[in-house]
């Protein structure tokens, strides 16, 4: 199955500046599986997205089709073909 990914500019620095990406995943892959896959070519993204206990950092939200996975099944949230994953960290400046 295939999912599309959208990153903010700050996170895209881990992806050679590319904000949009497409990943092919095995059927049944969940968010944790996607993050592990991303880490292979976006070194550092796993430590950015997850805290020491492996949960999603409290200052970053990961959305599947606009729904925050913190309120779905966290890193165990399942992914389906055609899903759109967006990652948005908190911003401070004003």
């Amino acid at each position: 199955m295939e999912i599309t990914l959208r990153l903010t500019k700050a996170l895209a620095r881990l992806n050679k500046g590319q904000k949009d990406a497409v990943r092919t995943l095995e059927e049944g892959c969940d968010m944790a599986g996607l993050i592990n896959l991303l880490e292979k070519d976006m070194a550092g993204i796993k430590a950015t997205l997850l805290n020491e206990t492996g949960e999603i950092s409290e200052s970053i939200n990961i959305y599947i089709n606009g729904e925050n996975i913190r309120y779905l099944q966290g890193t165990r949230s399942p992914l389906s073909n055609g899903d759109h994953v967006g990652i948005i960290p908190a911003a401070a400046a004003g």
Partner: peptide, 15 residues
């Protein structure tokens, strides 16, 4: 969420 560099607008659900 707005990205002016790409003119990308997204609305995310907040629970």
């Amino acid at each position: 969420f707005v990205d002016l560099m790409d003119i990308h607008f997204d609305i995310m659900t907040v629970t």
